[in-house]
Computed example of a mutant assay.
Amino acid sequence: MDVVTIGESMVLFTPESSPLMRYSHTFSRKFGGAESNVAIGLARLGHRSGWISKVGNDEFGKAMVGFIRGEGVDVSHVTFSDEAATGIYFKEVRRANDVRVEYYRKGSAASTMQPYELDPSYIATSRFLHITGITPALSDSCYETVKKAVEIAKQHGIKVVFDPNLRRKLWSEERAREVLLELASLADIILPGIDEGRFMFGVDDPEKLGNLFLQNGSALVILKVGAKGAFYFTEKESALVPGYPVEEVVDPVGAGDGFAAGVLSGLLDGISLDAAVARGNAVGAMATMVQGDFEGLPERSEIERFTQQTNLEDVHR
């Protein structure tokens, strides 16, 4: 396995007849979750990805697992709960810069994940363990499960990749900051956004944030700065990798997951760090052009076509 990730995915309902839920009588049903989005993105790029989770033993859970399996992701370590239901959320895309999400996930099946349910041999077969700051926010047992997964990865020399993916509605700011900093200190690679860096350290200067994350324990920091692209920082070098221009942002949700998938794909392929971050920028940009959390995640040939068609002079200006 190239990448194993762990976290909750939910059933996603989006209004069809009106952007506002109050006026909509019909909804489209899809699926979404940061970790499974990354796994799907990697599978589309030709990598072997596995998703660890728990869903309800209900029709939504069965449909979700079947769908993600159909996207080429290994779901052999997803379990079903007879006591808790699959989580649900609703997304209103009022405008590209006004996307509103309402979660109905409290007490969901995924929130009951336990450390003892992890199979150490499964994580040990991967090259990267991908985690986010969403899963530990779901419950104390989820926090302990993520910590256990990181411990297993460390024991077997597996690199840990951490996307803070801050969700303020899920926990208090104090607890969120404490856990995100703790997981960042355990991660080999961290993928924060500029807003998450500000939340965690109280500063928003990219260079200062890069150094703070390095001092906190990460060996590689890749700091997303929106349309401008992303900075990367190591002990030896740092640089800004420009983003790709997007004429119209249709749906920004899932862009960060696409970025993570693109960067991990580049690292798995052994290309330069600059090129890996550029691939992340390209996948993230393409994800914003299509409505849905993962629907816009490209296959490898699509990335090549997109980057060739993009005016590189504009990108690097």
Rank of each mutant, 00 (worst) to 15 (best):
Y89K: 09
Y122S: 05
F27C: 09
L191M: 10
A285F: 04
G33H: 05
P19I: 06
I152V: 12
I152Y: 09
M113D: 03
T135C: 09
D2E: 12
E174A: 14
M1N: 07
V221N: 00
R168S: 13
G7Y: 06
F90L: 15
V283T: 00
L240R: 08
Y143D: 13
R167N: 10
V93P: 06
E117Q: 14
A276H: 08
T14P: 01
S81D: 11
R317V: 09
L166R: 13
L273T: 13
R95K: 14
H130S: 05
D58Q: 06
K169V: 14
V221P: 05
T79L: 15
G270W: 07
V277G: 07
D58W: 03
N57P: 01
A261Y: 00
K224F: 04
K147Y: 14
T86P: 07
E304C: 02
G41D: 02
R94G: 02
E295Y: 05
D195G: 06
V225Y: 06
V75D: 00
V241C: 01
D314R: 15
Q308F: 10
I131V: 15
P245T: 10
S76E: 10
T112I: 04
E299C: 11
E182W: 14
M113T: 05
V65A: 00
F294M: 13
R69M: 01
P206N: 01
G61Y: 01
P242E: 07
N97Q: 12
E16H: 10
P115D: 10
E102V: 15
R279K: 14
E302I: 01
Y116M: 12
V263Q: 06
T310W: 04
E92V: 06
G284H: 01
V93Y: 10
A278K: 15
V241W: 03
E151R: 12
L273S: 12
G226N: 07
F80W: 11
E247Y: 10
P164C: 06
D293K: 02
F60G: 00
L138V: 08
T125S: 15
A261S: 15
L240E: 06
L273D: 10
I303F: 02
G254V: 04
D195W: 04
F201L: 05
F162G: 09
W171T: 11
A255I: 03
V221A: 08
G50Q: 01
L118M: 14
Q114H: 15
H77D: 14
G284N: 03
R175Q: 11
S172C: 04
A239E: 15
E83F: 13
C142E: 09
E117P: 07
A34H: 03
P242T: 09
A63M: 12
D2S: 04
S18I: 12
T310K: 08
G197Y: 11
L268N: 08
G270A: 05
A39S: 09
R48E: 15
G56I: 01
M113P: 04
N281M: 03
K154H: 15
E207H: 15
